[in-house]
Amino acid sequence: MIDPEEIKIAIASGKGGTGKTLIATNLFYSLYTNGNSTTLIDCDAEEPNAKIFFNGELNKTIPVTQKVPFIDVDRCTFCGKCHEYCSYNAIFILPPVKIIQVMEDLCHGCGACLIACKEGAITEKDVLLGNVNSYRINPLARLVEGRTGIGIFSPVPVIKAALKEGRTDQITIMDAPPGTSCPFIQTVVSADYVILVTEPTPFGLSDLKQSVETLRIMNKTFGVIINRSGIGNLDVYNYLRDENIDLLLEIPYDRMIASLYSSGILIAQKTISWQEQLLAMMNTIKAYHASSCYQR
């Protein structure tokens, strides 16, 4: 049987800037402050920022690399097989003028070109995609961050490495990247429960719908937090009611929250009621998770 205490929660949204990191960092803080062993994984690997809110000691940095082909032009016969095998147009070849070039940005590291080459002209080299940094915040809390290198096209391999490094048998909070494309999918796929953070605006609703549709296809359990309530209109509320989606929490549009957040201060540290609200929400989520564990 699955231990209901061992829960992985992804915090996601379609729209950017709705408050994913606000929720992830404050929930993380509230959990470890109240005696729960917790790991926060910042999966927004293109611009990780959860670490800003915590003092912690960096105890591990793991480089994330990918194999790309290296072509020995002297051995190459310009037969074009490697280009033919490549599904990503990552090998540029002009046989008449004897030009062959690897487009490293397009390479997925599948290794098909190595199999294609009968001349032994292709070997592999490592290209650095980014790093995974692991911080010890205190004896109960660990923060793992994926950080993609500048100019790297996809953060997905770095997110995968961060999730692997953050693997634990206790509570895991995953701060997901915005959108509903590959980086989002990679983050939520391992989650037991997904918290979608939105705002009551047309843009918030439009992207919430996309996230909901994606999570339903993935067969994920989820609930919604409405941040900045009081602005916009009631369309998000009507949508949640019509679709029978749980509203976990509402956070008012409040200058104090924005002000503290922009100074890198955790609201849950200043306001005990925030801790209580987030822990109560956590208990609701745990109860869902426990009931789904018993059903299995």
């Binding site: 990503y88 147009n89 990552a90 540029f92 070849i93 002009l94 487009m103 397009l106």
Partner: peptide
């Protein structure tokens, strides 16, 4: 992916 380099080729 890679429409640009393929078109250059």
């Amino acid at each position: 992916e890679g429409a640009g380099p393929a078109s250059v080729q």
